[in-house]
């Protein structure tokens, strides 16, 4: 499978990758590549700051349309800082659960009302 390299800094135009709207730009490129059956390498070279808001839109929402197997076999990341890896792992685990159980938010609201 042909692998496309996406430079996060280049897509965002900044070393601060913090805003959800910028994550959306990255998501759209990954989505386009996956639709064309390409593999993607997401390069975080020179990224200074990441937020989970950015990663939720950039990567998390892939789990809405693609299976875990498909994402695992088609997406790689490089040059993430240790702190960035922790955040991305958290984003990915949360997205997997979220799209498997769309009623989870309502359940958690009921739980807090029942406290």
């Amino acid at each position: 499978m042909e692998k496309i390299n996406i430079s996060v800094v280049n897509v965002v135009g900044d070393i601060f990758c913090t805003e959800a709207a910028d994550g959306q730009k990255v998501f759209e490129l990954i989505d386009k590549a996956l639709k064309e059956n390409k593999a993607v390498n997401l390069s975080f070279v020179n990224v200074k700051m990441l937020t989970t808001a950015f990663l939720n839109t950039a990567v998390g929402q892939l789990y809405k349309d693609y299976s875990e197997e498909r994402i695992k076999s088609s997406l790689t990341v490089e040059q993430l800082t240790p702190s960035g890896s922790v955040s991305l792992k958290r984003v990915v685990d949360t997205a997997k659960l979220y799209y498997k159980n769309p009623g989870a938010m309502e359940q958690s609201i009921n739980e807090i009302l029942g406290e």
Binding site: T51, T52, A53, N56, T57, G60, Q61, Y63, K64, S87, R90, V91, T94, A95, L97, Y98, Y99, A104, M105, S108, I109, I112, L113, E115
Partner: peptide
């Protein structure tokens, strides 16, 4: 819903809880 202000804040600070539609979150 009709959560009180403190219930709403507590809910939002819990892991994975988000008001976003169709995108996971609630990690920050």
């Amino acid at each position: 819903t009709n959560l009180s202000s403190t219930q709403a804040i507590k809910w939002a600070t819990q892991d994975k809880n988000t008001t976003k539609i169709d995108i996971s979150g609630g990690i920050g």
